[in-house]
Design a protein around this nucleic acid. Sequence first.
DNA 1: TGCAACTTTATTGTATACAATTATGGCGAC
DNA 2: GTCGCCATAATTGTATACAATAAAGTTGCA
Lengths: 228, 228
Amino acid sequence: MNELQSKPGTADAVAADLERAIHEHRLPPGTKLGEDELGEVYGISRTTVRAALQSLGHRHLVQHKRNRGAFVAQPTVREAREVFEARSLLEPRTAHSACKRMTDDNIRALQAHIDAEHSALDAGESGRALYLSGRFHIEIARMADQSTIETMISELVSRSSLIIALYWQRRAALCESQAHHALISAFADRDAELAEELMKNHLLDLVTSLDLRNSSSIPGTLKEALAK
Amino acid sequence: MNELQSKPGTADAVAADLERAIHEHRLPPGTKLGEDELGEVYGISRTTVRAALQSLGHRHLVQHKRNRGAFVAQPTVREAREVFEARSLLEPRTAHSACKRMTDDNIRALQAHIDAEHSALDAGESGRALYLSGRFHIEIARMADQSTIETMISELVSRSSLIIALYWQRRAALCESQAHHALISAFADRDAELAEELMKNHLLDLVTSLDLRNSSSIPGTLKEALAK
DNA sequence: TGCAACTTTATTGTATACAATTATGGCGAC
DNA sequence: GTCGCCATAATTGTATACAATAAAGTTGCA
């Protein structure tokens, strides 16, 4: 079950663990990530913790404040728009490429992914469901056999999870799955053009389901809201 | 002249310095980046050097070999194709966006950029000319007011410099400038569609000017060629 | 003489100690 | 009583010391 993950105790392993916790909303935006605290949790020194936090900082998942420490990032409205703009440039065309290379096994894997997502949702594990939902997009990039683009989409998906945590406005929760089902159908029909169009619309739907009015700054803590 | 660069001695400053040296081909692919050595050069401890190298590693500009150290990355043929595939998804549309927002000052700045590139070329500083040529693409992304996409393109441009170092096959050296001139004309005419098309073709030209036959592994040193 | 195993050396990986900076709590003055 | 300043504490930034690993050189044996 361990999918070529680094040995525990390494910076990569810690970073992966934290990234997943962030992606699953177990660590909400604004959470302080103290070095000593994390070092104690994982039983390692601050040196390794710092390496992990730096790695996440490069991926824009944690924000470093000078002499203040690391915090789970709180994307601004502007960042949110930029992330989805970037996704809209990368993902539709990548879905197109993926469709043309997709095997029956790939399609079954995607279907299994959605099933797992549904199971998580039924079990009340909404964080895990969100994580799997994001992984769905990453899997498609992987099937397109473009690891460079996959890495970029992976970062954007994780950041999207933070954006959803901050700006999601309640709505029908199952719209996501519907869009993913439609994508699988297009893949099964080997209709690359349709897959591209569906992905494009899916991303548009995601953006419109967010509340990105500039007014709502949405501070992490009310303390920070009054800090300035 | 110092454009909001970090104070010298910080990891960011060292990383920026190394990135530029790599981009300008002063540090060729495969160069060993010893921690002690760099620490002595910059007058800082290995701790800071390591942070800088990690940063560059995350941007795929240096490759870490376990217990062996950091080396200037040597992109494979596959990576080379992937990098330009990613650029072809991001840059044409970004040029389109940039064109619609572009001011007369922006256009003058781009023109000045090309002039500087020509000057460098005339002065025999081909590395600096290549660096400026890459910066041209990054500037366009900046003018599109999309900092997230700009960051991604910046990484891809730097990686492209490594790719050029490894796979460039001699050709007319000025073809680049011609393409950039044509882009500026499109911007001046406020023809976003044309700018998009020109960027797309420019990137295609770049790829075809590379020798990406799978056969040529192109080792960094002949020692490594015989190592296995 | 050629190969193999061992010793040596150099370099990275990790932890710890110290310095710098910032937030916090208390004290005093207005 | 409130505001401002100063001392204290806590946390990050940086350097150094030690441990682990891999490369290279050496010696011994076949």
